[in-house]
Amino acid sequence: MESKQPVMSSRHISLWYDKTRALTDITMDIPEKQVTAIIGPSGCGKSTFLKTLNRMTDLNPAVKMGGFINFLDKPLQQYDVVELRRRVGMVFQKPNPFPKSIYDNITFGLRLQGVKKKSDLDAVVESSLRRAALWDEVKDRLKQSAMGLSGGQQQRLCIARALAVNPEVVLMDEPCSALDPVATAKIEDLILQLKQEYTIVIVTHNMQQAARISDGTAFFLSSQLVEYDTTVKMFENPGDQRTEDYITGRFG
């Protein structure tokens, strides 16, 4: 896929959970400041691949991996994992705010880094919430529990929380699957705005969503990357019959 400079590039990534193969020889580039969507049926390895990008897969001791992934100038394994996860943020399928105040949710990452000054924290809370298009809705109740927010607001809070530590890449694992259409539309608008500043990789099982918001789309099937091209090409005229069958709903 001809495009901008890749921020991340995976080369021949294979991954096993014990004896089960989850990824087979995945080679793909994630271009800078674009939205890259990963689609595919359940169990195709798309979420697993996303989790390799910030080494969340390391948490599972049963995982064995081959190949390598470069982030900017060096392989992921050469980064301190804590530093890596700060720079490659993640938003999960189910909104997972901590049962604390909105303010404490946003500042959690910064506090981990030792930022203590109230004025610094305040500034980041406002800018992150603004970027996540949530500021106006919550500015008067920053000290209230995040659990009181609606599902869509919680998810935007989680995005704001990820943005607060100033990442370069934001990984999103089916971020709208638990949300209603209106909340989904808000998150989609947000993603389109965020790509001005961040590189975004989104796993989605909603093909229309991938079509609406992404620049490039990768189709995974049974642990393999079947096809990766511009979103327009993928949805108008995919090159692989399996992509065609999946996208047109003839898969099954």
Binding site: N54, M56, L59, V82, E83, R85, R86, G89, M90, F92, K94, N96, P97, F98, F108, G109, L112, Q113, C158, R161, A162, V165
Partner: peptide, 15 residues
Amino acid sequence: IPDSFREGALALGAT
């Protein structure tokens, strides 16, 4: 305690 709390923290760069 749901795993999402742990994952959420780890994904923000927590040890």
